[in-house]
Amino acid sequence: MIIKAVDGLNETVGRIVSVVAVIFAAIIIFDVVMRYAFNAPTRWAFDVTKQLYGFYFVMLGGYALRHQAHVRVDLVTERLRPLARRWVEVAGYVIFFFPFAWVFLTRSWDFALKSWQQGETTYGSVQLPVYPLKMAMAVAAGLLILQGAAEVLKLILDKQEKPHGA
């Protein structure tokens, strides 16, 4: 039940956030057309696309983990039996993943709160608020921790999903 809920949450977030790639691509195309076809570049497109890409990149961490799309070094685990491999992976989550994710969550939350309190904006001709992107980092870290917990439960309960092509 918990595993399905977390998987479903990150699946939904991933599918919704993936639309952002289309939006920032459209903005880039719009800016290029305005710049080269009409000699009228936008002042805002670069900053907006930079923030949208940052949002897109950080928010898909839980989705990527859910689909096992993160970089892995399987040099040690590929030679192990399935049970031993699962326990080595659980240990990896406990020793490496969760401490990193916890630091990511707590530091990004502090980072976002300070940015919001200061009303931080980008520099340049168009000053966009920065704190929504920094808040997204904290939300992404939370989603990553939840998905990590779901992945550990899958390993412990031996509930691994088959890859889509298998």
Results as ranks from 00 to 15, higher is better:
55 F>S: 02
56 Y>K: 00
56 Y>Q: 10
57 F>M: 06
57 F>K: 00
58 V>Y: 02
58 V>A: 00
58 V>P: 00
59 M>W: 04
59 M>I: 11
59 M>A: 14
59 M>V: 08
59 M>H: 01
60 L>G: 03
60 L>I: 14
60 L>T: 10
61 G>Y: 01
61 G>I: 09
62 G>H: 01
62 G>R: 00
62 G>K: 04
63 Y>Q: 03
64 A>L: 01
64 A>N: 11
64 A>T: 10
64 A>D: 06
64 A>Q: 11
65 L>T: 09
65 L>I: 11
65 L>F: 05
66 R>P: 00
67 H>V: 14
67 H>I: 10
67 H>D: 12
68 Q>F: 03
68 Q>N: 14
69 A>T: 05
69 A>R: 07
69 A>D: 03
70 H>Y: 04
71 V>P: 01
72 R>C: 06
73 V>S: 12
73 V>F: 14
74 D>Y: 04
74 D>M: 09
74 D>G: 09
74 D>R: 07
75 L>F: 13
75 L>I: 15
76 V>K: 02
76 V>D: 14
76 V>I: 15
77 T>H: 02
77 T>R: 02
78 E>M: 09
79 R>C: 00
79 R>G: 12
79 R>W: 05
79 R>N: 08
79 R>K: 14
80 L>F: 08
80 L>W: 01
80 L>K: 05
80 L>T: 06
81 R>H: 08
81 R>K: 14
81 R>M: 12
81 R>D: 10
82 P>M: 04
82 P>I: 11
83 L>W: 11
83 L>T: 12
83 L>A: 14
83 L>D: 15
84 A>Y: 01
85 R>Q: 14
85 R>A: 10
85 R>V: 13
86 R>V: 09
86 R>S: 13
86 R>Q: 12
87 W>V: 13
87 W>S: 01
87 W>C: 09
87 W>Y: 15
87 W>M: 15
87 W>T: 06
88 V>I: 15
88 V>W: 02
90 V>A: 00
90 V>R: 04
90 V>S: 03
91 A>P: 07
91 A>K: 06
92 G>F: 05
92 G>N: 10
93 Y>Q: 07
93 Y>V: 12
93 Y>C: 02
93 Y>T: 05
93 Y>E: 09
94 V>M: 11
94 V>D: 05
95 I>Y: 10
95 I>S: 04
95 I>C: 11
95 I>D: 07
96 F>A: 08
97 F>I: 12
97 F>L: 09
98 F>T: 10
98 F>M: 14
98 F>D: 12
99 P>S: 12
100 F>P: 05
100 F>G: 08
100 F>Y: 15
100 F>R: 01
100 F>W: 11
101 A>R: 06
101 A>L: 09
101 A>S: 09
102 W>N: 08
102 W>P: 01
103 V>F: 15
103 V>P: 02
103 V>D: 13
103 V>I: 15
106 T>P: 01
106 T>F: 10
